[in-house]
């Protein structure tokens, strides 16, 4: 297996006039669970569709599992994709959907898929449209896992699920990851649940990657500095990600910053949620006029 499950270089996608994704260069290590975080409309779905070969890039390249992302049978068979709102053929029974998986794939582990669904008490003879949202998501997951993919890509997999269904979905997903050791890339706009499930993070905002890396590394690299109110010399220690000022004191989120440089300043570690939110609050980068 290659070291990187996914590598992009200068990746961009334009729809008519607007760029949905721009200048995206990053890599996702194999065997990790990576979260792609960003507000709605940040370009998450576009990025994921580029990865699974549903879209062709306007600029740059995507390499998945060591090969350019295309839609050849070989490339497709190594990727499992779960689109937003887990679309399924609503008039098909679950058994028929499994048959689709079997007849449209080079390899399909019917037994595994059936076992998963049986464990969840999902009747195989029920039409997909008659299942609850959580059950539909589980069927879609079982179909994706049935391909025994090396890379599993999920677009907002839990956005439409109630809390119980969310947890059950995560349980199924994490169980599968533990069993198969595949690489997982999923997008989300909900932050609190991320920390328990992912170990790698990509933050996408305004069609650009604002931060990407190992969560442990990111948490050690970033520090929250609190001190007397100041608006000058913010760049003194490390890169300031975000500065918030109250009447008397200033809070800085800095990256690669050492100990607080000035007296009266205190450093403390930052939580993942605060870190992500700080990056999401950053304004769009101004285009430099040529």
């Amino acid at each position: 297996m290659t070291e990187h499950a996914l590598q992009t270089d200068g990746l961009g996608k334009r729809y008519r006039r607007t760029w949905a994704l721009q200048d995206c260069s990053l890599s996702v290590p194999s065997g990790r669970v990576t979260a792609l975080v960003g507000p709605n409309g940040a370009g998450k779905s576009t990025f994921l569709r580029l990865v699974v070969g549903l879209l062709a890039p306007t600029t740059g390249s995507v390499e998945v599992l060591g090969r350019p992302a295309t839609d050849t049978p070989q490339a497709l068979s190594r990727i499992g994709f779960l689109a937003q709102d887990h679309p399924l053929y609503k008039h098909f029974t679950v058994a028929e959907l499994l048959r689709v998986g079997r007849s449209c794939n080079l390899r399909f582990d019917q037994e595994l898929a059936e076992r998963r669904l049986r464990q969840l008490d999902i009747p195989l003879d029920r039409k997909a449209g008659a299942l609850s949202g959580g059950q539909q998501a589980q069927v879609a997951l079982a179909l994706a896992l049935g391909k025994r993919p090396d890379l599993l890509v999920l677009d907002e997999p839990m956005a439409s699920l109630d809390p119980v269904a969310r947890l059950e979905f995560l349980q199924a997903l994490m169980g599968a990851v533990a069993e198969d050791g595949m690489t997982v890339l999923f997008s989300s706009h909900v932050v609190p649940e991320l920390e328990r499930v992912c170990d790698h993070l990509i933050v996408l905002n305004h069609s650009r990657v604002t931060v990407a890396g190992d969560i442990d590394d990111l948490l050690t690299e970033h520090r929250l500095l609190v001190g007397p109110r100041t608006t000058a010399d913010l760049d003194r220690s490390g890169t300031v990600v975000e500065a918030t000022h109250s009447e008397r004191h200033t809070t800085l989120l800095v990256r690669d910053g050492g100990a607080p440089a000035a007296p009266g300043w205190q450093a403390s570690p930052v939580g993942l949620e605060d870190l992500v939110l700080s990056y999401l609050r950053q304004p769009a980068r101004k285009e430099v006029a040529a």
Binding site: P73, L76, Q84
Partner: peptide, 16 residues
Amino acid sequence: EAGTWQFAWTQSVPRM
């Protein structure tokens, strides 16, 4: 309409 293109074209059958 149903979004199922994303399912159909990510099985091992290329869209063409």
